[in-house]
Design a protein around this nucleic acid. Structure first.
Lengths: 176, 176
DNA sequence: GGTGCCATGTAACGCGTTACATGATTAT
DNA sequence: ATAATCATGTAACGCGTTACATGGCACC
């Protein structure tokens, strides 16, 4: 959120509601609508951190709103975000944890866990591919963001399936 | 954390510090030590939710501690965790967001972003493979958890690299 | 002339991280 | 002796989610 909001403000001042709408339209179909509350609290933190400056604006027939614009520091932060590649997130995987702890407590059969999880992943993958083929033919239009998001999800699921195979082989050499 | 702690408590009552140590030893080398503070606050929430019950224990020469044991509800929760496969997390990917917003603000060249990010991922992948080969030969011992975690990280990075290719092709058809 | 959506937020909570507090024991 | 480490934790903050508040406008 932080960086997304900052980069949108690089095009000129705006306010919470409008930012939410811009994000929703930029990522329509790719992700569910962003949470308005989060936009507001992010803006407040950015203000507190001096990356953004807010001013009250009176409006006729509507609640007053707060417009935010980038400060010099904020501009620099945006530049830095675009200039710097991000590390791949080093995640604490829930499933591996489950298998290890199942083995430790001895109450569950790890091979069963793998089997059930694989079925679930395969279902998810089928669902994603269904979605992907449903958005491609009708609207080959300007977006494509949703297609890219789905492509990423599919690739990650395929990786997870390969990982399941590796975990299965490993549990079998330990226990079986 | 929640489920990890509950599953450890399935083997009998314990307290924050000991749980932290058990987790650290179970996942040694795979993940950095867990945060003690998080263990304690998780235990408090579990207590509040009725999955766990805490009792004060006096000790000689040490601070008193709080032992926690599973309640009936907690036992059920553990059973459920092991019985239910988890959905693959449907993540809001930071890099795709960056590319889309770079295109929107027009201030950055998306192809550049892809190139830089790919270099970073390749570095990470090399690093992971270096780690993997460094833990395999000396200690083919009982663990393997660390090896599995690294395997997972590598598979995910490879998926991310493929995704970068797809994103690159997409940005080129839009802009180039 | 109600019902619901638009526009603008605030408040409460979950879960994770970092930093701090404190008294005993071990290491040098 | 003094410093590090062990054994318990608490407190503050970040960022995300869900729920609530409120006043105008649009539709039926």
């Amino acid at each position: 959120m932080r960086n997304a909001i900052l980069s949108l403000l690089a095009r000129g001042p705006s306010h919470g509601y409008e930012l939410k709408q811009q994000l929703d339209s930029a990522f329509a179909g790719a992700w569910p609508p962003v949470n308005v509350g989060q936009v507001y609290s992010t803006l407040q933190r950015l203000d507190k951190d001096g990356l953004v400056r807010g001013v009250e604006v009176q409006q006729a027939g509507r609640p007053p709103r707060t417009d935010y614009e980038l400060t010099g520091q904020g501009i620099e932060e945006v530049r830095l975000w675009f200039a710097t590649p991000a590390d791949a997130p080093r995640l604490r995987d829930d499933f591996l944890m489950k298998v290890v702890l199942a083995g430790k407590t001895g109450a569950e059969d790890p091979a069963q866990l793998v089997t059930r999880q694989r079925e679930r992943y395969l279902q998810s993958l089928a669902e994603i591919e269904r979605l992907a083929s449903s958005i491609r033919p009708p609207a080959g239009s300007a977006d494509g963001v949703a297609a890219m998001a789905l492509e990423g999800a599919a690739l990650h699921l395929q990786a997870d399936l390969k990982w399941l195979d590796a975990i299965e082989a490993w549990t079998l050499t330990r226990n079986g």
